[in-house]
Design a protein around this nucleic acid. Sequence first.
DNA 1: TTAAAATTTTGACAGATTTTGAATTGACTT
DNA 2: AAGTCAATTCAAAATCTGTCAAAATTTTAA
Lengths: 251, 251
Amino acid sequence: MLSERRQKLIEDYLNEVEFASLEELSEKLDVSISTIRRDLTRIEAGGRIRRTHGGARLVEQKKEEYSFSSRQQVESDSKDAVGAVCADLIGPGQNLFMDGGSTVFAVARYLERKSPHIVTNCLAIASLYAGNPEIEVIVTGGVVYPRLQVLVGDLAVHAYRSLSADIAIMGGGGANENGIMNSHLLLIEIQRAMIASAQRVIFCLDHTKIGRRSFTSLCKWDAVDILVTDRGAPKELLQKIEAQGVEIILA
Amino acid sequence: MLSERRQKLIEDYLNEVEFASLEELSEKLDVSISTIRRDLTRIEAGGRIRRTHGGARLVEQKKEEYSFSSRQQVESDSKDAVGAVCADLIGPGQNLFMDGGSTVFAVARYLERKSPHIVTNCLAIASLYAGNPEIEVIVTGGVVYPRLQVLVGDLAVHAYRSLSADIAIMGGGGANENGIMNSHLLLIEIQRAMIASAQRVIFCLDHTKIGRRSFTSLCKWDAVDILVTDRGAPKELLQKIEAQGVEIILA
DNA sequence: TTAAAATTTTGACAGATTTTGAATTGACTT
DNA sequence: AAGTCAATTCAAAATCTGTCAAAATTTTAA
């Protein structure tokens, strides 16, 4: 049995049962416990499972703004609607900062006719218009953060600090009446640099994000000009946010 | 049985079963294990499968959006061969600068097991390993140059100047006995920065580039440590280049 | 056309590398 | 102390790479 095939089988099995013990896997695949251990270590490096005492379990798929491939499907209608409405706010030829994340990517897809100048640390957005001579795309640089496929680190922060934009189009992990939150510490510094160098700040968050808590506070509402979300968002919370001077647009 | 036909059968079979062991294929096609090995090596060069210990597996078809759709086809056998040979020169965990262009991209495809640290201004290379946590990818930043899908400009130049690498893997538009040439002025400054910050400089040029003139001179041969090309290149010219202290490796 | 020469393909094999299972050791829990 | 699990080490087995000579194929020459 090929080791890669075995590892794939382990992954498939874990996808069914959530958790499996070493012994269980060892018997099922007819190899020694040692081999199972080694397999699990390798699979864990891929990130989809986690080793535990005596076995391994599936990593719960975080329902987060970022992280593309899996998320892209879920709530894509909401995201699309938010994206289209947000793109309407952009004038032709404006300079944009664009954050990572699937909602912001949805905005990017509607920008073609605006011929914008885009500065981004998101590889997906950069690649989207990389072949289009009508749209100038500037990539910030930085270290690729594999889980989110965005660029992080000093290069990215410096790039945003040294440029300026008409509008920053941002995403986030959650929002409540106190402000916006994000779960990825590596991104916070970058997002703050974007906000600081942009004239107007637009946050795009589909309704699942409104009212959700996340890991760290990114900014308060006074830093935000516009919040674009969809009708599924809780109205009373939106009112509290609006009272803090944020223009709210519903898709 | 023609070897090409056999290779096609192997590919078809892998498309069905995803994994196959050497033994399995050897029996199925009634040839020796050695032959299967060689077949797999050749098929792997095409990029659709990957050899593993004891067999081979299908490569998940990634979205085509990032790859060099048109140019990739032309001379792709030569480029692949050059890519494989060049990748052999890289040690595990080394720091690499990687230029843009399809030949350098062909090198990138063979680097998976070397777990390199890659610094690049090429979006295709960045996207290739963006989701792989084993491989650290740093993107230089810069303005996307749509024709080549590489990043150009000050951000890119500064990034390369401020970093350093064990090896720079470079492409070019042409080469003659005086040195390497490139047709894209925007790239010259960047490539010079790469060369200046790297310990060893490897140029990868398929045979169509050897002897071809291009627009501007990029560098003389004394800046180059190794030239990787294929057997189609004119031998007398290679000798003249070798006489200038360049190690020449033929794929 | 046939024969000889050159090239490519194939199978086999030796030495290096990787994978595997078992044994040992050490950390931690009960 | 006893038991469980993880990490490490080690030797055996499996597999990989490079090389070589035989076989098959293609090219060249007559």
